[in-house]
Design a protein around this nucleic acid. Structure first.
Lengths: 198, 198
DNA sequence: ACCTGAACACCGTTCAAGT
DNA sequence: ACCTGAACACCGTTCAAGT
């Protein structure tokens, strides 16, 4: 018995099912997957198109500013902001939780870290700093102290994540491995204690 | 009276004088100048060759690993390490001075900041961390405390420089300009006080 | 030893064209 | 509206060749 025609076509044609439609969200998530698995330098519009099963030029229809907009999207995608705490003394655990979570996301997606430092996406980093400052201000800190604390904390988290992500910075410790979790937490304690003393 | 022949040649020939010979040092300094004035993205081997009045391919003779080696050279060129203090209590001013100097270099050459986060040049950042840790260890800190302090301080300096360099991170301060010098010094005080309490 | 010229395999992006 | 194909002006890097 000969095979049913349409079935035979479906088996030989390499792309039988209609593809999921391209969206900004799907493009950025696929790009992040490439960065995580292959590194930032291997994220090209052509390779991204391949991963999306589409020609590279189709991406420009959803991200008119091209690769610039793609990289800005990656930065915004990994960033998170602190939640406003309930009680008046809740700022310290709230910021400690946020810092731990932010650090986890940054080390998880270490490939985007250089973008945080390069991109002039004003909303990304300054918005995060503003949120931290607002938490401190709501807890009763003066404007200037809240600003100092926000930059000290965000700076520490970013910088420590950079040290971790590079795997380097072993700090004269040739044989033993550094316990980065413990080290981050200890440094975080230093910064938070210093902010409390403002 | 007709002009003296060799002089006439010197006036019409566009490249009369013998060029300074190419060296690794001169290549890296010229590259840094391009990064400072035009941005990291405009540093290309061809443009660097133009600036050196040489074909791009000549650079490979002095930097066999090509652009990779060039970028590593830039990172090493802007980095500085803390000096070992004289007295036993000198660690705090010594590290404060170093931090201020390092921050100044990083913001001056903001274009190389992304490279510090990207480059897997193990000697660059880990060597700096090791030097800071050694200053603390020599001041009597235990191994683990010295490591924590070194990473906290270096992390803060790197992260704060990143916040500054992006100009962003205005922290809910739409109208007024941030006094970055004062803010860096205040945050540095927080971190150093925290280290002293270890 | 040091530099050049031509070539290769890539990039990001445009633009007219297809459906 | 959404995607494609061909083209343009660039990249980093190689390699044989010049001096």
């Amino acid at each position: 018995m000969p095979p049913e025609p349409t079935e035979a076509i479906e088996q030989t044609d390499p792309t039988p099912r209609p593809r999921e439609p391209l969206t900004r969200e799907r493009i950025i998530e696929t790009a992040l997957h490439i960065v995580d698995s292959q590194g930032l330098s291997r994220l090209t519009m052509r390779r991204l198109g391949d991963a999306l099963e589409v020609e590279a030029m189709a991406i420009y229809h959803h991200l008119p500013r091209g690769k610039e907009e793609l990289l800005d999207g990656l930065v915004a995608h990994v960033g998170i902001r602190p939640a406003r705490p309930a009680g008046p003394d809740g700022w310290r655990p709230a910021l400690a939780d946020w810092a731990a979570l932010y650090r986890a996301r940054l080390t998880e997606h270490a490939g985007v870290l250089p973008l945080l430092v390069t991109r002039r996406n004003p909303a990304a980093l300054s918005g995060t700093a503003a949120s931290v400052q607002e938490v401190l201000r709501a807890a009763g800190f003066a404007e200037e102290a809240a600003g100092t604390g926000a930059h000290a904390l965000l700076g520490y988290v970013l910088g420590h994540a950079a040290l971790e992500a590079r795997g380097g910075a072993r700090a004269a410790d040739p044989e033993g491995a550094v316990d980065w979790d413990a080290r981050f937490t200890a440094g975080l304690g230093i910064v938070l204690a210093g902010i409390a003393g403002l």
